[in-house]
């Protein structure tokens, strides 16, 4: 490690604000970029499962009649 302490790494000789701000503003959209399609995928997955249950129930009642 180049810095002597974590506090020095946080301060970065006065440039810390800019550097950490830039990294934070990169990390947030990148997380969203991965999380949003995963969320969409999960929603579609649930929709399909619900549809399957409904169809299974429909065929079961038909068979019962």
């Amino acid at each position: 490690m180049y810095f002597e302490s974590l506090a020095a790494a946080w301060y970065m000789d006065g440039h810390g604000f800019y550097v950490w701000l830039a990294y934070a503003l990169t990390a947030i959209p990148l997380c969203f970029m991965v999380w949003l399609p995963l969320k969409r995928m999960r929603q579609h997955w649930r929709w399909i499962q619900a549809e399957q249950r409904r169809q299974a129930a429909a065929t079961a009642t038909e068979a019962g009649i």
Binding site: M1, Y2, F3, A9, M12, D13, G14, H15, G16, Y18, V19, Y23
Partner: peptide, 14 residues
């Protein structure tokens, strides 16, 4: 990049 690499001699840590 943040912690290990040395700073630039002209621009410092930015």
């Amino acid at each position: 990049g943040l912690l290990v690499a040395p700073p630039d001699f002209r621009q410092g840590n930015s």
